[in-house]
Design a binder for these strands. Structure first.
Lengths: 204, 204, 204, 204
DNA sequence: TATGAATGAGAATTCATTCAT
DNA sequence: AATGAATGAATTCTCATTCAT
């Protein structure tokens, strides 16, 4: 039983991985279910053993990528380092993901679009909404710690700042998608410096 | 002849407007050409008198919206005001557009997605790329003027900063789309303050 | 009034001519009514002043070409020449028309097809039927005269022979259409000779 | 695997047969793909599993009929019989096919038309061209054998005669299509006799 | 459990025809 | 009489999904 479940889970993940690659390359609309099953080395019908529809598979890819990125970001958050350094690291790490996994990251564009017009628009919407909420919380907490520990100006609104930090990192991915010459890591670094230069008490 | 051309242009624009509304409401995939023609009060075939395909009409909407937004942004750029104020105004104006025209802004999500998998992906890509290039230039010029006039720190890289500013405004729209409670105008204001606090020489 | 009628007739014929050329080049299915109106230098609506439908125009072309060919064939039939020579001339003339007006002649293929599946199939059928009837009559009369005048074997069935003569000339056009290297005039000459002279040695 | 291939081939042939019947009855233009699928007792989509388009299916019908007719004609060609008798048999057999399978023969009219204006015009053209070439060769060989064996006049051009013989049989089908009262078998017999025996009295 | 042949709902698109000017 | 913008009926083809094996 546990063997079977493992197998099942294993094949399910194989399908999610295959789907991620094919969707990333061709986009949701141009991807046929058979493209994915072929890429995964299984029959077309098998996909429907694990997912009830193409959109559900797409949603599974969304959740998987969402988690992959989050765990990578969370890994670099460290409470024992100056808040400024943590923020800078988060910026750089995100920029690195954007640059290294350009194709995968570009799927965001379609996840967003799926929040309108897809049969799963509510689930995609909710997924994005909670994801942004989490990131804002994560960021706000870093900012607040910096303020508590006297690193950052206490008069700034941590929540509002967080909205913009998350925005900036998100938008960076968009620009990089459209223009390969955009230097995400460089821009993220400059952003960290400029923002902290304004945020940090000791530099004044 | 000029009458006819005018008429033609007139009806073309009516169709672009109708399409923008329907696409904004339903998304590209869920919108049938007949939905648009009905909304415009014309027959289905008429759409094809002006646009050779559904995607071409979509692209026309893209260009139209791109121009609408740009002209609105350019209108608030003023060279005789302190750079800091111009930047703040640009932020606020963008945030206002995002908030007031939520539906229209949401089309961005689909324009972006169309850069992957649409038959016109190259045209959408090129359109977005040039748009971002323009906005970065616009922003960088404000920053550079601020540096020349002694308002802003001269050691920061204007081009890199511009990338992030454009990113932040773009990403702001995304978050607002997913979460109506996000206060775009407030966040933009906080961003302006934080960023300028770091940028501005006289505050140090 | 007579002026108007003349005008009307004139423009009608211009349309038939234009249609013949365009249909000959593109075939019925691929030809749009606007292709014809443009070729004739008039507006699309004008075609409908003279013909109630595309198929009716096609039928008019059919009748026109039918008459053109018939009058050319009839012109060479001469009752004061030996039947053998008349037959030979009819063969050669037909072969010449086939060769010189290859494109126009190839429209036969579509007239034939129109006798099945076109809305006018009955009219096309009847038109072809009567045309073949006429040609058979024309040919049979020549053969009969030849028999009366002692030129031809009296024991042969003139009607049956006529069927085949008409067949042969018709089929010649088909082969020439598909293979430009087929020498219609040469084949027609050989046919005349073989038919008149007989193939078999031992029967002489 | 061979089972599957066989199955596949089997259903493909079922579709070709169904298509032949429906096309023969209604003509290409008036036939909807769903008419064929219904006639074959399968779903509309199934047709597209075996043929990429309506025109490709039509072409498959063309090739099938071409082969069917050829094998029937080749079956009656016999090298050990006097050439005259072989020719007579070929004529009669063709006339019989024309008479018995009037509907199927009528497809020729559309195959011909498809050589002008169809998306596959080149393939239809090439198919017809090679078919005529084959038939001319077949006929010419019979004539040449007759000449070698002293049955036929040696001074006639076998190639040219062949063109006309093929023409005559083709044209016979056309006339029979338009006029059921035309006696194809009788005409073919008279043709054989006249051709072999010669029409002209004075040359005997 | 895995498969892929079969299915048919659904949409884009074409173009003959109409009719207001 | 002449026009061509507007129309929508009609049809092909796609592809997600089902289900018998």
């Amino acid at each position: 039983m546990s063997q079977a479940t493992l197998e099942h889970t294993g094949k399910r993940q194989i399908l999610v991985n295959a789907a991620a690659e094919v969707f990333a390359r061709q986009g949701f609309a141009k991807t046929r279910v058979s493209d994915i099953s072929q890429h995964a080395g299984v029959g077309k019908g098998t996909v429907y053993e694990y997912f009830s529809s193409k959109e559900e598979l797409f949603f599974a890819v969304f959740e998987w990528i969402k988690n992959e990125i989050r765990s990578r970001v969370e890994a670099v958050v460290n409470d024992h380092t100056p808040a400024r350094d943590v923020l800078t690291t988060v910026f750089r790490t995100t920029a690195e993901i954007i640059t290294e996994h350009r194709e995968i990251f570009s799927m965001n564009l379609e996840f967003w679009a799926a929040s309108r017009g897809s049969a799963f628009e509510d689930r995609f919407s909710a997924g994005c909404q909670s994801m942004y909420h989490e990131y804002r919380e994560l960021t706000a907490e870093i900012v607040r710690r910096g303020q508590r520990e006297g690193e950052f100006r206490p008069d700034l609104d941590a929540d509002r700042i967080s909205v913009v930090i998350v925005s900036a990192l998100d938008g960076l991915g968009v620009q990089c998608w459209f223009d390969e010459t955009v230097d995400a890591v460089g821009a993220a670094g400059a952003f960290a410096e400029a923002l902290c230069g304004g945020l940090c008490v000791e530099e004044r």
